[in-house]
């Protein structure tokens, strides 16, 4: 990896991490939601660096475009949260968080120092065809079941939220 790519990687990673920290440290849920958009966008940048342009586009369209906006709408529609900005958004257990983060760091670094064999094949420029065939080939059943899961989640949301 040359210097240019490395510096891009560092910038994108910093954006992702700052966004993630912002989510947990923001004073209001609404601000957390905004920070989440930044973090999602950073992850899209990582996908671009990994030569997965389709995944990056999907990340921006679905997570940045739809999921984050939906979260912000949900927050704005929740009267009690919008009305009272004084509620703390985290439980301030920094010690426990530090332990978990350290453990996670150990596992992740163990994973990344492995001698992964780099693939000799060049990645497909647009993997959409292969993705479509995978969805309707070996992953047909999970692909169809996901729609049932979404239906059930929708029914559940109505039950739990209808006035």
């Amino acid at each position: 990896m040359n210097v240019f790519l490395t510096s891009i990687f560092v910038i994108v990673s910093v954006i992702t991490l700052v966004g993630a920290l912002g989510v947990v440290m923001a004073r209001t849920v609404f601000a957390s939601g905004l920070w989440l958009i930044l973090s999602f966008a950073g992850v899209a940048g990582l996908y671009v660096l990994l030569e997965a342009p389709f995944l990056a586009a999907a990340q921006i369209l679905i997570y940045v475009g739809a999921v984050a906006v939906l979260i912000l709408f949900a927050v704005m529609l929740t009267r009690r949260v919008m009305g009272d900005p004084g509620v703390s958004q985290n439980n301030s257990q920094w010690g426990a968080a530090a332990v978990v983060a350290a453990l996670m760091f150990i596992v992740l670094s163990l994973t990344s120092v492995q001698n992964w064999r780099p693939s000799t094949e060049s990645p497909p420029l647009l993997a959409v065809n292969a993705l479509g065939e995978a969805f309707l080939g070996p992953y047909l059943l999970p692909f169809e079941i996901v729609s049932v899961v979404l239906l059930v989640a929708l029914v559940g949301a109505i039950i739990l939220a209808r006035e």
Binding site: Y139, V146, V149, V152, V155, G156
Partner: peptide, 25 residues
């Protein structure tokens, strides 16, 4: 018998269980 199917069905059961647990609003 596929990890994707394993996780989706696990998540499916979890979602129905959450809803049923919170049924008495």
């Amino acid at each position: 018998t596929d990890l994707v199917m394993v996780i989706i069905s696990l998540e499916f059961l979890s979602i129905t269980s959450y809803i049923l647990t919170g049924y008495l609003r």
